[in-house]
Design a protein around this nucleic acid. Structure first.
Lengths: 346, 346
DNA sequence: ATGAAAGCGCTAACAG
DNA sequence: CTGTTAGCGCTTTCAT
């Protein structure tokens, strides 16, 4: 089923049919009769254009590649959901790629996407700087970085002010009277881990105290890792009062142990974490949290990409989004007042 | 950059180059010298085959379409993650589509996927039976249903025994001494909603009691909907003791209100829900939960699709997976003993 | 206002 | 062992 069948049925030539199909009837002053007869045949035969052929001919596939570390993570799930929807609005289909934080996968996928002649790539990279492969690829197709970026790059990117947010969260914990704070991290040398730990450390430095290396863990971005880190932490330092979790997944894992620990010991641990807003309601406890604007993150990434596709040279924009520090979530029934007061006094 | 450049550089013909590229050097007894010289040029020029052209020529794109209601839902997130990874192992790329429970979107995407000449489609449908469009499409490309299926269809599918599991969950609630049970549902007339409510009703019927229609809600598969339904329920019936949630998202939303309510009234509500295993640890409370084997679900769907691609006529398999009813999750510190005892007595 | 023909980059049948 | 050529389905000059 191709234009050929339409041709046989109507007697018109390839070009005329193609023009009608692409809505260029007016432009080429094709008679209404011709157009109608073609459209009728198209409907009757249920003809649909072959997008692969069109892609080959046009050197444009209307396809983009989305590379994320882990689509299971609801944070990336939401980003993917938003971007896919927005891209669809521009006529693009989205090819999904999961790197699982493995740099080799990232290189593999980037290559595949180029081979598939996608029109652009949105990338939440594992690498922390522009490695050789990417340098070659960005010459061929526009690439936009989302969430995780490179420090020195003229690739367009969008991310949140993670370092600053982490700093503020820790500072808040200090103001609440905690000076021993554990850091439950993810994959070492990864962008987020680096930036958020940097903010963590900065807050300590300003306060003039040293980060206790025994309270710093980096086991991976997953609930399982979070659980393990929390267990190790409690084994090592049962009297810990405040814990900083590098992301939502680590937080969820950590909470399992925290709750158990609190029941057993009667002690309360103050938790701080990034991007846990969706879960905040579910915990009957004060929580220090930083929330990124996922909608803006997604929208910006797509906009930057579209711009890049339209004019590859014009796209060097860097967007740093503020992160919402709705610092404490305190169910009013649970003595939150005391916390709040301490915070207000500074 | 195409085979042509390789040809110009090495002097060999299209076909020879193509053969070497596709690892058919042995088969066509191409001399080692020729092969090496070609491979050298390929490396030197950084040549990569154009998958669009290959796809057009071979009538095979090594691409599959994945249509899910909502990639934000960690349940589908995990399925997508597993399937993408497995498909990648077979050399396929995955095109991601979100229907948001809207039937029109499903039809749109299916059409796009066919136009893109994907080699197959994995579909968690919104429709509850084989509508006209699908009937046409399945003639062109293999389609596999996952999670949500059609009752009478010879399309291959894989799902869990949802009706039975819901029945067992409710029966468990009965045995624990609750006979007024609320149903917090999702999108009406959707497969899961139907099946799980059917199981819910069946348990009531067996017990000889009627389902109270005032305790049945269907507001959508989302935390927001769950929250709203729980609020409505508590307004209507503050003394409710047991609540059945149709899925993980509804459960998460509902919990927010439950916790508040419990703190305010001192009453305990027993929650039952599907696919909340990942969150179970986080709640210090008994929970009745049914857990689907997402790994098996994903693996089976991919296997069925691969089979379907290899032999379109051979694929009519239906796989119904048992659902794990690890019925009660009871933190031992919290009087779980009493619950367990009641359950054991039957 | 419409048609003929080239060509996107690749594979494979056929020829030698 | 290697080369020539047709053709996948489409868009787009260039003719007329």
């Amino acid at each position: 089923m191709s234009i050929k069948q339409i041709q046989e049925k109507t007697g018109f030539s390839y070009s005329t049919i193609s023009r009608v199909l692409n809505g260029k009837a007016k432009e080429f002053r094709i008679s209404d009769k011709t157009r109608d007869s073609i459209m009728t045949a198209v409907k009757a035969l249920g003809y649909r254009p072959n997008l692969v052929a069109r892609g080959l001919r046009m050197q444009k596939t209307n396809t983009i590649g989305l590379i994320v570390p882990d689509i299971q993570n609801p944070f990336f799930g939401e980003l993917a959901w938003r971007m896919e929807r927005k891209l669809r609005g521009f006529g693009y289909s989205t090819i999904l790629c999961n790197t699982d934080e493995i740099a080799d996968n990232e290189e593999y996928y980037l290559q595949v996407l180029i081979d598939r002649r996608v029109d652009g790539v949105i990338l939440a990279p594992v690498h922390t700087r522009e490695w050789k492969g990417l340098e070659e690829i960005r010459w061929k197709k526009p690439v936009v970085l989302i969430d995780r970026i490179f420090f020195k790059t003229d690739l367009p990117w969008v991310t949140g002010s993670n370092e600053q947010a982490a700093d503020q969260m820790v500072t808040t914990l200090f103001r609440l009277g905690h000076s021993r704070i554990a850091f439950l991290g993810g994959v070492p040398r990864t962008y987020m881990n680096t930036m958020r730990f940097r903010g963590f450390r900065k807050a300590f430095a300003r306060r003039g105290i040293a980060v206790e290396s025994g309270l710093v863990f980096n086991e991976g971005y997953s609930p399982a890792a979070g659980k393990k880190m929390m267990a190790d932490l409690l084994a090592r330092c049962p009297e810990i009062e405040a814990v900083f979790c590098v992301n939502n997944l680590v937080f969820l894992g950590a909470m399992a142990h925290v709750q158990k620990h609190e029941i057993e010991t009667g002690r309360r641990i103050l938790m701080a974490a990034f991007d846990i807003a969706p879960y905040c309601d579910m915990f009957k406890r004060p929580l220090v949290c930083a929330t990124q604007d996922r909608e803006k993150l997604a929208d910006t990434a797509v906009s930057l990409l579209i711009k890049g596709i339209q004019d590859p040279h014009l796209s060097r924009e860097h967007v740093m989004l503020p992160i919402d520090l709705s610092l404490l979530r305190i169910p009013r029934t649970e003595g939150g007042g005391a916390w709040q007061k301490r915070l207000d006094k500074g």
